[in-house]
Amino acid sequence: MSRFSASDAAFSGFRLVRENLRAIAIWAAAMTVLSIISNVLAIQYFGRELEALMSYLSDNSNPDPEETFRLISDLTPLMLWSLPYSLVVNGVIFAALNRLVLRPQDSRFAYLRLGKQELRQAAVWVLSTLILMGVLFAGSLIAGFLGAMGGPTGAFLALLGLLGAFCVVIYLAVRLSFAPAVTFENDRITIFKSLPETKGLFWPLLGAYLLAVVMSIIVVLLIWTIVSAIGLIASGDLSATGKMLRADTSSLQAYFTPAGIVQALFSGLISILTTLIVFAPAPTIYRALKGGAPDAPTTGGW
């Protein structure tokens, strides 16, 4: 029997927003500024390539894999630059989230820092992603091998292999979901020490996480509905709604239209809200299982 309420945990992100409006507003403002700066740099140097890829994908319901790969390869320098940027930003945000939940008294700088804790959080997400991708890749190889048998039997076994790999990925993602919180608490990179903490809690954890994802989707849709309504009232142009959902990235002049500015201003808020709603349940549940206060750090990693 679980020692926490899955429904209460799923709404923990909303409670954090309500109880820490000032800190969350600072997070959203910082994320908005960083998003605008990164978008400006990306459009300045790779605007045409970005617009070519987005236009091709939006105009073709069945895009050619070779053409898609060619367009993506043109953006390789941008992706190489975006990867470390994303890791640092995510590390800062997830460390701040864990600090807010596990050490709420440490509220300096609105819980935002840039140090070892943030680098550990980035490392945890990289390692967890590699583990999950490795499992999915192995499952795909097995499914391909089974599919090579040919016939309905081979196709059926290949489908079972893919479904099995997908289920294993979900299972591991849930069982490893405490890794960021454990890492933050122990000041050491820990991945597999999340397993004993989540033992026997898979189904209530999965329920809490799924409910949180559904709520985040509803929040995003609600925000974009409101923003689109405001844009429609202000401009009287029905096409403005579509432009807000995907701004023109071919040039800075095309991007900084009213629709592009609205998208940029709300992107930071949406990013922070979805992060809190989806990922706050894990450290919140971890804290509840620990009795509301972190224990003394343990030695050793992993």
Rank of each mutant, 00 (worst) to 15 (best):
G242H: 04
L273D: 00
P281S: 12
F109N: 12
L273T: 08
R113G: 04
L41V: 15
G207A: 10
L160Y: 11
E51P: 12
V278P: 01
F14Y: 15
I170E: 01
I233G: 11
P283I: 01
L136K: 14
L146F: 14
V227P: 00
A52F: 09
F156V: 14
Y171Q: 07
L172M: 05
R175A: 01
A158M: 04
I272C: 09
Q105E: 13
G161I: 01
I24N: 01
L41Y: 15
G164K: 02
V174G: 03
F109L: 07
L119K: 12
A110L: 06
G268M: 03
F178K: 00
T32N: 07
L87R: 12
L172N: 01
G161N: 01
K199F: 10
R287M: 08
P77H: 05
I93C: 05
A229I: 15
G134T: 08
F11D: 06
A155T: 13
P297K: 06
L160G: 15
L146N: 09
I272M: 04
M133C: 11
A179G: 08
L132H: 08
S2M: 10
S86Y: 03
L273F: 13
L102C: 13
Q105T: 15
G231Q: 01
V174W: 01
P65W: 03
P77K: 02
A280L: 08
S55V: 14
D64Y: 04
I170K: 02
L100P: 00
L160Q: 10
L127P: 04
A23Q: 04
L211Q: 12
R113H: 10
V214L: 11
L130Y: 10
G139L: 03
S107V: 15
Y286G: 10
L172I: 14
L269R: 08
T241D: 03
F279W: 10
I261C: 01
S2T: 14
L127G: 12
A25D: 05
V220K: 02
L136F: 12
I223G: 01
T198Y: 01
G260L: 00
I37E: 07
A29W: 03
G154F: 02
D106E: 08
V262M: 03
L146C: 12
G242V: 09
R48H: 13
L245P: 08
V220Y: 02
T275K: 06
F137W: 13
F166M: 04
V219K: 01
I217M: 07
L265W: 03
Y255I: 04
L100Y: 01
S216M: 04
N62Q: 05
G164W: 02
N90L: 06
E118S: 06
P294E: 11
L75S: 07
V88D: 05
E19I: 13
G115N: 06
I285T: 14
L245E: 11
R18M: 05
A25N: 12
L238A: 13
V92F: 00
F266Q: 07
R188H: 14
I218D: 05
F184D: 00
L83Y: 14
E19A: 11
L172S: 03
M215Y: 11
I142L: 14
A179F: 02
G292K: 10
R188Y: 11
T183I: 08
A179P: 01
A42E: 03
S73Y: 07
F279M: 11
